[in-house]
């Protein structure tokens, strides 16, 4: 499987290089796109002071983690966001007929080029805006990979609903985007019942907020709690997908094929 993932990365890159100019424009465009938010926060913090414990530097940490984690997911596990389409158009067949672990095979087989822009942006922003101690760099790298894993689990969870209730593509992409939106604001601004949702159904807290706070003030017990939460999320998504496979209709159900 490891060799296969390497090949997927290499061939995806090679395919992207068939349209080199488009690749460069997309990567730079996405990085520039994200940079706009630096100005937003700069202008905002110029006017107001600290926001529930978050200053400019802390928000930049939050942002760099969100961008890098999201970018990592889009680049290396990029097929997740197309899962509904793969399910209802019957394209899962191809993956089901291959003798490798199904979920990694699906997720890794596509790369979304603009994700490179997010990934590069996140890493550069981290390098420029944060203190570079070995511990921070280590925690940032680990959090990045974990965030990508959770983003993929969110995709897997919501897109698996397509097995059960017809095309869930819109719902899934809305959920994915909502988590990303929440993740780019300090978690401390949210109060009450909404924070429950952000720890469960739209787990921006697990993906970005708690890791950010752990980088800022590391605590082992909190880190273990986080890992347990991550485990539950990954397992839930996995089980939902596995259960859905039994109902897989290989393009026969939707009546979309004319």
């Amino acid at each position: 499987m490891r060799g296969l993932i390497g090949k997927y990365i290499r061939f995806n890159l090679a395919a992207a290089m068939e349209y080199r100019v488009s690749f460069v424009i997309q990567v730079l465009g996405m990085a520039l796109n994200n940079s706009a938010f630096i100005f937003f926060w700069l202008l905002l913090f110029d006017k107001v002071g600290d926001i529930n414990g978050y200053g400019f530097t802390e928000v930049m940490l939050l942002w760099s983690l969100a961008a890098a984690g999201f970018g990592f997911n889009e680049v290396f596990l990029g097929n997740g966001r197309y899962l509904s389409r793969i399910i209802y158009q019957g394209e899962l067949d191809v993956y089901l007929l291959q003798p490798v672990p199904l979920i990694p095979n699906i997720l890794c087989s596509r790369m979304n080029v603009s994700g490179w822009g997010d990934l590069a942006y996140g890493i550069i922003l981290f390098l420029l805006s944060q203190e570079l101690t070995p511990l921070w760099i280590f925690l940032f790298a680990v959090s990045c990979v974990l965030a990508a894993l959770l983003f993929s689990s969110i995709n897997l969870f919501y897109h698996s609903l397509t097995f059960y209730m017809g095309n869930g593509e819109n719902l899934a992409s809305a959920a994915y985007n909502m988590v990303l939106t929440f993740a780019t604001y300090p978690g401390t601004i949210f109060k009450g019942a909404s924070t429950w949702i952000m720890h469960t159904l739209l787990p921006a807290a697990l993906v970005i907020w708690i890791p950010t706070e752990l980088i800022l003030h590391f605590s082992l017990s909190r880190a273990l709690f986080l890992l347990a939460g991550d485990g539950i999320l990954v397992a839930t998504a996995y089980l939902l997908f596995k259960g859905g496979l039994r109902r897989y209709a290989s393009g026969n159900r939707m009546g979309t094929r004319l």
Binding site: K7, Y8, A14, P99, N105
Partner: peptide, 17 residues
Amino acid sequence: WYHLPASDSFSLLGSIY
């Protein structure tokens, strides 16, 4: 793979199998 030579797909499938 649509954008790559078939030889690349063969090599990938080799890994898969």
